[in-house]
Design a binder for these strands. Structure first.
Lengths: 145, 145
DNA sequence: AGCTGATCGTCAGTGATACTGACCATAAAC
DNA sequence: GTTTATGGTCAGTATCACTGACGATCAGCT
């Protein structure tokens, strides 16, 4: 989907605005992370897995807001790149504990810095107070409080 | 994708927030429009086609920010429901002029009222000034000004 | 007029994404 | 200990938007 539509009569439709703001950010973010060999989606998984307490696939999926079946492929991808590894939980052998490798942790660090810079740049089109209000408003709308 | 993830450590990632705010709104909007037999996507197409000057498929696609190949299916759907019709442009017979039927116009009226109410409800979780700033900020981010 | 290149709508094929339903292994409940 | 529930996996499906190709039509140039 193109994200650079004409302004048109659509700039007051909430669905349109949320969708296209997201599309635009995804483009920017993808471009910024590409040199690191990752993308926003994968980075979010890494960030979740970096939790101090080790997470099972399902717990990680819950925090990411994705399905557990989707999580399978995400962890597959990380494992294929040696960014994470599955360990069988000693206390419940049904569960996979997913742990970042040293490589994964390093990538996370570098990529997170890139992400923060990218977000800042993206929001730089807004007055600073508006950017703050935007973020807090999105938090409310996205999480239902 | 589920939209009711745990708040988690993710409420400060712009990509996550935009995505999930959009998902949540889409749910709400879809539910609200379902009784009318339409959805937010189709409604947006109707609204674009209601332009005073008649639009070709490609012009409509441009205003919607969708690909012209995507537009084919959208117009197909409208035509199947007798909400719009394709007319060959007299001045350029390559073009389809897409025009709302009376039925389409009536649905648009009813559905737009529902949409406005739905957006208001959705934003009601925010203080009014924040909602206004959110909208104008999204406009900037979505359209690149 | 006649030819060349571009544009519009269409369609088939592809890739990404996320789901459902089923399965097996394991655990928990009783 | 048998039943029930849970975690991970996979196959199949649906949606969505794209690319690349095609025929029809138009516009520019000669």
């Amino acid at each position: 989907m193109t994200s650079d539509a004409l302004p048109g009569p659509f700039s007051d439709r909430l669905g349109y605005l949320l969708k296209h703001a997201h599309l635009r950010y995804t483009e920017v973010s993808t471009r910024a992370l590409a040199p690191l060999g990752t993308d926003g989606r994968e980075l979010a998984v890494l960030a979740v897995l970096a939790s101090d307490t080790p997470l099972s696939q399902q717990e990680a999926a819950g925090r990411l807001g994705v399905d557990r079946t989707t999580m399978v492929a995400l962890v597959d991808a990380l494992e294929a790149k040696s960014l994470a590894e599955r360990l069988r939980s000693p206390t419940d052998r049904r569960k996979n504990i997913v742990r970042l490798t040293e490589q994964g942790r390093q990538l996370l660090d570098r990529a997170e810095r890139t992400r923060l810079r990218t977000e800042r740049d993206f929001l730089a089109a807004l007055p600073a107070p508006d950017a703050r209000i935007l973020l807090s408003a999105l938090r409310v709308l996205a999480t239902g409080d």
